[in-house]
Every structure is written in C-alpha cells, then in structure tokens.
Design a protein around this nucleic acid. Structure first.
Lengths: 207, 207
DNA sequence: TTCATTTCTTCACTTAAGTGAACGAGTTTA
DNA sequence: TAAACTCGTTCACTTAAGTGAAGAAATGAA
C-alpha cells in the first residue's frame, strides 16, 4: 500500500490525536483550549521504516514520542551496531544531545513505519509559558521515566543474559517478533551468536 | 569525634546551604525570598554511616539529595546484596516507590557519614504552587538525569566488566577508594572474585 | 521467479565470568 | 589478648559468552 486516501489519512490523524490525549489524561486533565494548543503545534509525523532520525555527530533539537511503531537508538562501535534501546507505543525520548547541546554519540532510526510526535525545546518553552500545566506534565513524565529507567538498569545489572531474555519474553514479548535478532542481542548486551545459543539452550531445557 | 561544637555545626550548615544554592544556581537563579522558602522547609539531615534510609517492602515518601558523603541502593537477591547505584556529592534520587506508591524493591543505605536533603512530594507540591520556578528546576533536573542515566546504561550495555572498571577508574576514581570492593563488584555486574581477578589482570597487563 | 544480500544458526575453539573452598589481613568483640 | 568476623584475594573447576568461519533461511531487488 503506497498511497492512502485522504479520508483514511484524516481518520488516522484523529486516532493518533486520541492516543496522545488519552495518554496525557492519565497525568493531567486538559481543557479544549489546551488540547487545541497542542494540535496547533503540528507535531504529528509519519516516518518510514529505516529512516534515520538522528545521526552520530549531529546536533539535533528534536524529542520524539511514539504513537505507533517502533524506533531504536544505537551506537556504531568498531563498525558494529550496538542497539541500546527500543521505544514503542506511548514511549518517548529526548536525546542526550538535545539536553546537553553537544553532538550526538548515537543514532536513532525507525524500526517500523511509525507515527511520532516531534517536539523541540523552543516549542516547549512557548507552551510552558502559556499553560504551566504542560510543564507539570513533563516533570511528571520525566520523573516517572527516570524511576522506570533505574529499575530497568537495576534488572539488567542483577541478571544474566539468559534471565534478561526470559524477562523480555515476559514483559515485552512483542519486541522479539518486531525486531531483528541482531538488534535484540546487543540490547541484551551479547552477540547474535550468543543469543542463538541461549535460545537453543532454553528450548532444550523445556523439553 | 562524637560531638561537634555548636558554632562548627552552624558553619557546617552554612556550607551545606551554599553547596545546595550553588548547585541550583546552575539551573535557575533564586531570589532571596525563594532561598528562604527552601530553608524554611528544614530539609538538611546528617546521617551516620550504615544507616538504612529505605528498606525493601517499605512505602517511603522521601527523596534524597547528597550534599556530602555517599549513599547506595541495593537489592537482596537470594540472600545476596546487589548494589546497583552509588550517589555522591550533588547527586540525588527519588526512589521508585515514591513515584509509584508501591512497596520498595530495594534498600537505600548510607555508605559514609553524610549530609543529605530529604524532601517529600507534599513539600514539593506546596513549594511548586508558591514558586513555579522550582517546578522548572525539578523538570530540568529530571530531564538531565534521565539523559545522563541513559548514557550510563548505554555504556554499561556496550562494554565488558573490565572496560566498565577502567571507565569508573577514569570517571569516578573516588568511588573505588570510598566503597567496599564487594559493593563495587555488583555495581559492575560481576562477583567480588571476578573483580579481584580482573584487577590482577589489568596490573599484569601494565607491566 | 531468480539472484543477491542480509540475517540467523551452528560449530570448534578461546577467553572470561561463576562457583565453592581456603587463606590471610584487618577489624571488632568478648 | 584471643577468638570471631568481615573482607579481599587466590585456586581449581565449571559454565557461558566471544570469535571467526561456514552454511541455511529469509528477505528484497531485478
């Protein structure tokens, strides 16, 4: 499917807006005026699979939030891709380079055809001024993500690659289907060969 | 030294206040009124080495910021301590259980005699109301920590235990002196025996 | 469909971490 | 001061991850 009819596009956009507002409403309640302010920023973007959103060395100002699809961050170390994170529905990131105004150490690319919101600090500041509620929202989100991230890191440190794989199998089973194995391997901190072996080992155990 | 004279205590308190305000001033500038508002919250605490600030299963409401000293988070898994983070001067954490209002999965204890600020969400909300600038401060801090945390996690995933040790040796050399080896080992994701071996290996290489 | 490329798996071998035990240095306690 | 304990190191052995190569399977392009 290369083209979509206009009406399907607009239905799609409405769906995405709903997804976003539903998500936000679990943190703060928005008035119609506030919803309108968000929409007027025109932050919805359709991105094709394989698109590179951020390259190493680049000084981007964009933060991303995934409404549909999947994006990943990865480093290229000694010519090898090292995937460090996947972001799927209702997850977002503000790249390190945006916060620290330094060239990026990593890449961000689109694992699937995706729909994202794209924002920059300028837009944020503007809307924070008009509606302080959005700053509360961003603070709550950051704090929650920070705590969640810490737990993730803790789990990673305190478990073996095999346990990590079983953990993902439980908590984000979709990832295993959506994502190439070699990307998943570095996400688990191991080589693709080790992931293959590890899976074979698990299957052998369950027989 | 069991007791300190009153005047030394008050000098000490002033030093700590300065440390805090200097730190804050790198993010937002505070008026005297705002500084006073912080001081009136009475958030400075002296904590003895070994004190457990948070226990597994507890539902704490306290966030900590280290002005002097060192605290750590650790899990007890199969009767073994797994240290996952150290917080030293000008670093802070809001425990997961505070954000998610669930019993804590981990412990927080004091590695050295320390001086901390201790805050809870109620105090935050109150001061955010009066001085929105503090919410901006907290948002900026959270966002920065989140990005920094992500980089830490990335480095951990993309490197071997030996590289991680060399990395700490560079970035936080004080930790190696301040902290027991068995705590450092689990922080590196390995057993104390492996840390010993790894250090011996590094020394052998440099000969 | 066919060919080319990418991705995944398997294998043999190497390297390093896990495990359990033992020892010594340093610290605490009785 | 002596005994008990904690902590770090070392050792022998086990287990699993890293490496390089080869082949099978899946994917994409002509």
């Amino acid at each position: 499917m290369v083209k979509t009819s206009l009406s399907a596009d607009s239905r799609n956009r409405e769906t995405m807006q709903h997804l976003l507002f539903d998500f936000i409403s679990t943190y703060v309640s928005l008035s119609e005026e506030e919803k309108h302010a968000i929409l007027s920023l025109d932050i919805f973007r359709s991105i094709k699979k394989g698109t590179i959103l951020l390259e190493e060395g680049q000084r981007s100002q964009e933060g991303y939030f995934v409404l549909k699809g999947c994006i990943r961050t990865y480093y290229v170390i000694d010519g090898e891709e090292k995937t460090t994170a996947f972001y799927t529905e209702m997850e977002g990131l503000t790249p390190h380079c945006v916060i620290h105004k330094a060239p990026s150490d990593y890449y961000i690319s689109c694992v699937e055809d995706s729909i994202l919101t794209v924002a920059n600090p300028g837009m944020e500041e503007e809307i924070f001024q008009k509606f302080p509620k959005f700053e509360t929202l961003c603070r709550m989100l950051s704090e929650e993500l920070l705590a969640k991230q810490q737990i993730n890191f803790d789990e990673f440190k305190t478990s073996s690659p095999e346990q990590r794989y079983l953990n993902i199998l439980q908590k984000r089973p979709d990832l295993i289907r959506r994502v190439p194995q070699y990307q998943l391997a570095s996400y688990l901190g191991i080589k693709p060969q080790s992931l293959s072996r590890l899976r074979a080992r698990i299957i052998a155990k369950n027989k």
